[in-house]
């Protein structure tokens, strides 16, 4: 097994072009588990931890650009106001040690349907900046997940950064785990409200072959909020709207029975999480309006 450790981004891209079979490693919190279990043995490992360009996050107008080396601990420390949905999701990732090492981009690289970062990135309409020696490109988060642990990266490409819109309104994330910390999601859900452009974003985790949005639920809620003029008001959401939203989220999932839970439970839990997270966001929005 070859171990390649570039120190600059251009070296990294060249290495990936030369060794398209190489596994990129950032924090190693997924890769090392695979290696330790002896499940797969890559011919080469491309260690990105010395590539300085990947580490910082920056604000660019109405976006946060998360360099591919940005860890969950970085998000928790720096971005609770700018990216509240991703922050809540980051809090539930592994242990403090895992959060210190693990990166948001690593979650995308692994593309496990259970990754905690996916639902909030879907809900907030993120973009993935990827690059190769052929040049950079951007992939909309909707187009990024192709299948179980498969993403839209070409063999010579690396993730450079994730561009996430600064939250224009309340965002929430919730997951189900059968213990109260350090648990892989049985299922998870994120919602983001954009009162400026009057949009609703959603993301479902661990309940389909890939992370996915609940598009119909988004459409229903957007229409309902617009149609009834609720964006301007300060009242609570009615029970029927919440229930319908929850049902549509559950319907968007395509879960299976597995060692972590049953399909029926996942659907049920998603409907509950959808209702609750939407309520929290809406109450937050009402509070902001009342304060304004």
């Amino acid at each position: 097994m070859q171990f390649i450790r570039p120190t600059t981004w251009s070296e990294a891209l060249q290495a990936k072009a030369d060794h398209p079979e190489a596994w990129p490693v950032a924090g190693g919190t997924d890769v090392l588990v695979e290696l330790n279990f002896d499940r797969r043995r890559p011919e080469a490992v491309l260690d990105l931890s010395s590539v300085g360009e990947l580490r910082p996050w920056t604000r660019e107008d109405d976006h946060v650009r998360l360099g591919a080396g940005t860890t969950y601990t970085d998000v928790l420390r720096d971005l609770p106001d700018l990216l509240p949905g991703l922050t809540v999701a980051s809090r539930g990732v592994g242990s403090p040690q895992i959060r210190n090492r693990g990166t948001v981009a690593g979650n995308l690289g692994s593309a496990s349907p259970a990754g905690d970062a996916h639902p909030p990135l879907l809900a907030s309409g993120a973009e993935v900046e990827v690059a190769s020696v052929r040049g950079p490109r951007r992939i909309a988060i909707d187009d990024f997940y192709l299948g179980v642990k498969r993403n839209a990266l070409e063999p010579d490409e690396l993730i450079a950064a994730i561009r996430v819109p600064v939250a224009p309104g309340p965002q929430q994330y919730a997951k189900i785990g059968t213990r109260n910390a350090m648990v892989i999601a049985v299922c998870s859900f994120a919602v983001a409200l954009d009162p400026v452009r009057r949009r609703v974003g959603t993301g479902i985790g661990s309940a389909a072959p890939t992370p996915r949005r609940a598009v119909e639920a988004e459409g229903f809620l957007t229409e309902r909020l617009d149609g009834r003029g609720l964006w301007e008001g300060t009242g609570p959401l009615d029970e029927e709207t919440l229930t319908r939203f929850g049902a549509l989220v559950a319907a968007a999932a395509q879960p299976i029975d597995d060692v972590r839970g049953t399909a029926a439970y996942r659907r049920h839990a998603l409907s509950v999480l959808a209702r609750r997270t939407l309520t929290w966001c809406w109450d937050d929005l009402r509070a902001r309006r009342e304060a304004a």
């Binding site: 809540v88 809090r91 539930g92 929430q172 994330y173 919730a174 997951k175 189900i176 785990g177 213990r179 109260n180 910390a181 648990v183 999601a185 509950v272 999480l273 609750r276 929290w280």
Partner: peptide, 16 residues
């Protein structure tokens, strides 16, 4: 949330 069922998974703020 660490005092609630689900803990840091943020599954409830007291509902249910």
């Amino acid at each position: 949330v660490r005092e609630l069922p689900g803990g840091v998974s943020n599954a409830t703020h007291g509902e249910g």
